[in-house]
Simulated scan of single mutants.
Amino acid sequence: MKVLVNTGPAHPLFFPLVPLAWALHAAGHHVLVATPESFEPVVRGAGLRMAPVYGPLDMGEVMGRDREGNRLRVPDSEEEMADGVGCGFARLAVRTLEPTVELVGSWRPDLVIGESYSFASAAIAAAVHGVPWVKHTVGPGDLPVTAALARELAPELKEHGLVEMPRPDLVLDNCPPLMGGPAPDTTPVRYVPYGEPGVVPDWALRPGVRPRVLVTLGSVQPQIGGLPALAEMLAAVAELPVDLVVAVADHLVPGLGPLPANVIAAGWQSLTAVLPGCDLAVHHGGPGTMMACSFHGLPQVIVPGRGKPLDEIRRLAATGAVTEVPPAELTPHALRDACRTLLDDPGRRERARALRDHIAEQPSPLRVVGVLEELAAAR
């Protein structure tokens, strides 16, 4: 079977698809990734083959400007954000659509898989050539973008003889029941974290003398006032009897200034490399980070960033495995106390491990391969 995997050129979109792509390859199927050429190093790092469907591309420019190149204002509400994100991915589809249609026509895949944001070009190309297509969620809290995609892509849909956005033949949902998934009429698939390959730090391979706390807030979180405020947060958490690992972008580390002796400024780290060596994670609520921590059975302190899946974060908080600290309530002492509570309460660690076991009960990507084989064979 030949399978075309379509993704936008962004790590949070592509990484959730990699385990399924590996499972398909391990089962003897031919997998090809379609994405703009600027994403080639990431696809190559995942050990997968790629067909570029656009040249170099800056996702920030695509999402932040309209078709005429005018700068767009930042959305004020969650509803506006969903609409804006959908229109942004439609503009990405405008660039990649015709090359994707041509690729599907020439390579003739038996199945097309697209992630749940930049799926439009894959969906249209599959419909044009009569190939079944599958939508794969990228984590909990997927925004509803289909309506905005259809509205923005109305000229392209009409050009290809379509009156609406093609509906997927199958939806794979990697959000486990405790976090609100899988959605009705979807097929569950286990979330398996993937991170770019590389050297695992020496400290992550050794048991810690004290609890090891990972802080990974992406880049700078505006709601905590940037690097000076982050440094204050770290100093407060470092007052606990812990070893604190700060995993932020490499260029941000110098801006943190002098740090306490029990703080490791690790720079950027692949979560799959370091989470098994940690006992607690503090992060901004990104779906991939949240799911990777849950997969490894870690208690979590989440300071939700803008646009993060609040409903799913609160479902996890209700299990006891997660503590949410709203940005408006965030102070150095509040963050320190949240970490202390999770570390001192054995019941919280047990609930985090129960969440890990819950995720493990979902069908693995390898099991889902059989479902995809049946779908392709039926067509």
Rank of each mutant, 00 (worst) to 15 (best):
T289E: 04
H283V: 03
G218Y: 04
A266Y: 10
A273M: 02
A292G: 02
A229R: 14
G288R: 01
P207T: 07
R206W: 00
E239S: 13
A321Y: 06
G226P: 05
L240K: 13
G225S: 04
P207Q: 05
G288E: 05
P228K: 12
W203F: 13
P211R: 13
A231Q: 12
A231W: 14
M291F: 01
D202S: 14
V246Q: 08
L298C: 05
L252Y: 05
A265W: 02
V301W: 10
V237Y: 09
G225Q: 07
P241T: 07
T323H: 14
P228N: 09
A261R: 14
M233E: 11
V246A: 15
D311G: 12
G320M: 10
G257N: 07
G267N: 08
H284R: 05
G226W: 10
A204I: 01
H296K: 01
P287H: 03
L244E: 06
V209H: 14
A231F: 13
V248E: 12
P254H: 08
L244K: 08
I264V: 15
V215R: 10
L252M: 09
A318H: 10
V303G: 03
L256N: 08
V282E: 02
I264F: 06
L234C: 11
A273Q: 11
L298S: 07
S219C: 00
A318F: 10
I264D: 04
G277V: 07
T272G: 14
N262L: 05
S270H: 01
R212W: 07
E324P: 08
M290V: 05
E324G: 09
P304F: 06
A273E: 05
H296T: 01
L271R: 03
R210Y: 03
V253S: 10
K308I: 00
A249W: 11
L234V: 15
A261Y: 00
T216I: 02
P228F: 12
C293Q: 05
D250T: 11
V303D: 06
L240A: 07
P211K: 11
G297I: 00
K308V: 00
G288D: 02
D202M: 01
V248W: 07
L271D: 02
V246P: 07
A266Q: 06
P201M: 10
D279A: 04
F295W: 14
K308G: 00
P260L: 03
L275C: 08
A292F: 01
G285E: 00
H284W: 04
P254Q: 07
E324T: 12
Q300H: 09
A266I: 05
A273F: 00
I313L: 15
G225W: 11
W203N: 11
P304M: 03
G218Q: 08
Q221A: 13
P304D: 02
V253E: 08
G226R: 06
V242E: 04
L227I: 15
G226N: 06
I302G: 11
I224V: 15
C278F: 02
Q269R: 08
L271N: 05
P304A: 02
M291D: 01
G218S: 06
P254E: 04
M291L: 13
R306E: 09
V248I: 15
A318E: 14
P304I: 01
P309L: 09
R315E: 10
P276T: 04
V215A: 15
S294K: 00
V301R: 12
D311C: 00
A261C: 03
M233L: 15
